[in-house]
């Protein structure tokens, strides 16, 4: 049976995490952790609740260069933030597909990332926005690009004794647009079968984030600027570039279906992102 600890300082939290090593689990929203506890797929000795820590980074800080997201920002708060809506529409679209309203009132963006699911909805948009992760431990802090953070299913750079204390999102380039598309088995709350985020900049450079099509979320770029008025050319480029995806067959879908629909969603995400370049407002 786990013990529960609610530190009030970051130092105490890191000390506790270091002390319990692999037996410790940081805890914010609990939407994944409690499911794991129920099924005994995780059996931590210590649950470290971060919600009482006073000196962690604020849930969200906006600077001229972008936004900094702390460990306690929920998906609901993220999606409701006006500046996030303006700068990162793909991320908002993705956050709004995470579970239900009640889930989004609890689940945190940082926690969702640390969970390391290849199908995490918010991973593709974070990847295309070149998010960076700051990891703290008793030894200090280090930062890494998110693309290096995801190692394998349920495994990230954040190891025992460590804590992700911030995700930094650089401000998108002037004149760029982003969009998120995903496929599910039903229209209501569901896990993604395939998900894609795209950023298209003013010159037609395209960055893609892919979810549920490999052991970890994937970031990839189309070579060179793309003429977005030439849809057949776009489709050809996507066909080549999406070879990086290595989907598997599972209870949600077959490999073949994922391969095929990944291309469809990527095309749609790119075209939607391109359309948003002028207004930068999220289509409602």
């Amino acid at each position: 049976m786990p013990k529960y600890y609610r530190p009030t300082s970051r130092a105490d939290a890191l000390t506790a995490l270091a002390g319990a090593g692999t037996g410790a689990r940081p805890f914010v929203g609990g939407t994944d952790l409690l499911v794991g506890l129920r099924h005994h797929t995780v059996e931590p000795e210590l649950i470290v609740d971060l919600k009482g820590v006073a000196d962690l980074p604020e849930p969200i800080v906006v600077t001229d260069d972008g936004v900094q997201i702390g460990p306690t920002l929920t998906m609901g708060e993220l999606a409701a933030h006006p500046l996030v809506q303006r700068w990162y529409p793909a991320l908002v679209e993705a956050a709004l597909t995470v579970g239900s309203v009640a889930i989004r009132n609890r689940a945190s963006l940082v926690g969702n990332s640390c969970n390391g699911s290849p199908a995490a909805d918010t991973a593709p948009p974070l990847l295309v926005h070149d998010a960076r992760v700051t990891i703290a431990s008793q030894d200090g802090e280090r930062t890494a690009p998110l693309v290096e953070f995801f190692l394998a299913p349920r495994r990230t750079l954040c190891g025992p004794g460590e804590l992700v204390i911030r995700i930094d999102l650089p401000r998108p380039a002037e004149g760029s647009g982003s969009a998120f598309r995903r496929l599910t088995r039903r229209r209501g709350v569901d896990l993604a079968t395939v998900s894609v985020a795209a950023v298209v900049d003013s010159d037609g450079r395209v960055v893609l984030g892919l979810g549920a099509v490999g052991p970890r979320p994937i970031r990839t770029e189309l070579p060179g600027p793309v003429d977005l008025t030439d849809e057949p050319a776009l489709i050809r480029l996507l066909d080549e570039q999406l070879e990086v995806a290595t989907p598997i067959s599972d209870v949600r879908a077959s490999r073949e279906y994922r391969v095929a629909t990944l291309r469809v969603l990527a095309k749609r995400a790119v075209l939607a992102a391109a359309d948003r370049r002028t207004s930068r407002e999220m289509a409602s």
Partner: peptide
């Protein structure tokens, strides 16, 4: 449209539980 119990080669229900056995929601 969506419901089906899926079994593996050991006869286990692969989608045992609400997460992967999908029933219609408000949006369906």
């Amino acid at each position: 449209q969506m419901e089906q119990l899926l079994l593996d080669e050991h006869g286990r229900i692969r989608n045992l539980g609400a997460l992967d056995y999908r029933i219609p929601t408000f949006k369906d």
